[in-house]
Write a protein that binds this DNA or RNA. Structure first.
Length: 401
DNA sequence: TCTGGGGTCCTAGGACCC
DNA sequence: TCTGGGGTCCTAGGACCC
């Protein structure tokens, strides 16, 4: 059998985090449920369909969600649970095709062009996947079936909840034209209002405009992207494994931080988390970035590229401290801090370098921490104290603890 | 109604090199 | 003593996605 005209599936789990929580705790079923942080600065990450009936949406501030739905039940997110659930669901997808590209914990593209002889048409495969996920994981998902990734993703949104929608290769314009530009991937608030200024609200209007008229307002890359999605073109393949480009951790505080000691303590915790995740996934980072958001929401980043990549928490922390101190802040109220490592290399690629290095006690300390975590669980090991970052300039001894 | 945490990609300017 | 054009790397910020 030849390759079908609509070989691409986009599978999107319905209200994923909320559905997993409701499955785990039957007392939550049928109730308006929000997964998120209930605090004053919290937001909703996912809402059950019962909560959506009250207008509760993801990314909505929790205070507002509670006003919209006073009986809303909040559950704090448990990402480890969603991660293992995600692996199980992707495992089901992988039985139908090796070409599975995960976009996030709750959605994936599948290229089933080579699977039709064994499993039936793409729509039949979509239904089989949905049945398996429902039977084995007690979760609902929606599937878009289309000639390419853009269209499949749009279709899965229109298929929700708990449905399948196919966009036939000869019916692309009928599908796209009536959609609002805000439905398109890559059109957010800014782009939508800029398009509205050009009198463009529907995809049909965007399509009629053509790329030339868009360049002035959006720059070449963005204009080309908009024109492409308006045509319904997309020649990107389904790529199973994209290596990560960045590992980051950040935190918004219930109350703004002002004291340097508090700020350094948080930078240490964040550097620790980033280090742990880099070592777990076998990455070292060349560039370290800190992110600082002030009480007025103004947000800045500062970064430094190191001569040698690292996954050592103490080095991440020392760099974060230097970047922070270079800001020369005094008494600023800080709402959020973040630490990120980018320019990632796999640890294996740098192993050769390591052989020549002198013994590194910080690395040994991290290894010991990792070992304890592995044996006793994640929350067990906490750093006892914040160490001052190394003084710049001369130091008497190397590797002092 | 004040706005999370994890990411990706793009732009633009400056340094530096040939 | 003045000055080209291209390429690459680094830094900072911003839009966007789930």
């Amino acid at each position: 059998m030849s390759r079908p005209a609509e070989p691409i599936l986009h599978v999107d789990m319905d209200a994923f985090y909320a559905s997993v929580e409701a499955r785990e705790d039957p007392s939550l079923r049928g109730r308006p449920l929000a997964v998120g942080w209930p605090g004053s600065r919290g937001v909703v990450m996912a809402a059950s369909y019962e909560a959506r009936a009250y207008g509760v949406r993801s990314a909505m501030p929790s205070a507002r969600a509670r006003r919209a739905c006073p009986q809303l039940v909040f559950v704090r997110p448990n990402f480890d649970l969603y991660q293992s659930e995600s692996r199980a669901v992707v495992g089901v997808f992988s039985e139908f095709t090796p070409l599975v590209e995960q976009l996030s914990l709750d959605e994936a593209f599948l290229d089933v062009g080579g699977s039709v002889r064994m499993f039936g048409s793409p729509v039949e495969i979509a239904e089989r996947i949905r049945a398996r996920v429902r039977a084995e994981r007690a979760l609902a998902c929606s599937v878009g079936v289309a000639p390419n990734k853009f269209l499949a993703k749009l279709a899965s949104q229109r298929a929700k909840p708990d449905g399948v929608l196919r966009v036939p290769a000869d019916g692309i314009r009928e599908f796209l034209d009536p959609l609002a530009v805000t439905d398109l991937w890559g059109v957010g608030e800014q782009t939508a209002s800029a398009l509205a200024n050009l009198g463009v609200r529907t995809v049909a209007e965007l399509h009629a405009l053509g790329p030339g008229a868009l360049e002035g307002a959006f720059g070449p890359a963005h204009a080309a992207h908009l024109a492409m999605v308006a045509r319904g073109d997309d020649d990107r393949g389904v790529v199973p494994h994209e290596p990560a480009k960045q590992v980051s951790a950040e935190e918004t505080f219930e109350k703004d931080l002002e004291a340097r000691a508090d700020i350094l303590r948080e930078l240490l915790r964040l550097a620790d988390r980033v280090g742990i995740r880099m070592r777990d996934s076998g990455f070292v980072a060349r560039t370290i970035t800190i992110k600082v958001r002030f009480s007025d929401f103004k947000t800045i980043t500062r970064s430094r590229t190191l001569p040698e990549p690292t996954d050592v928490a103490a080095r991440l922390y020392a760099t974060a401290c230097e970047l922070y101190d270079a800001l020369g802040l005094h008494g600023s109220r800080i709402r959020l801090l973040g630490v990120a490592g980018s320019g990632l290399l796999t640890t294996g690629a740098t192993e050769q370098l390591r052989l020549d290095e002198r013994p590194d006690r910080w690395r040994d300390a991290d290894r010991a921490v990792d070992d304890l975590r592995a044996r006793f669980g994640g929350g067990t090991v906490e750093r006892a104290a914040v160490r001052e970052p190394r003084a710049r300039g001369k130091r008497k001894t190397e590797g002092t603890r």
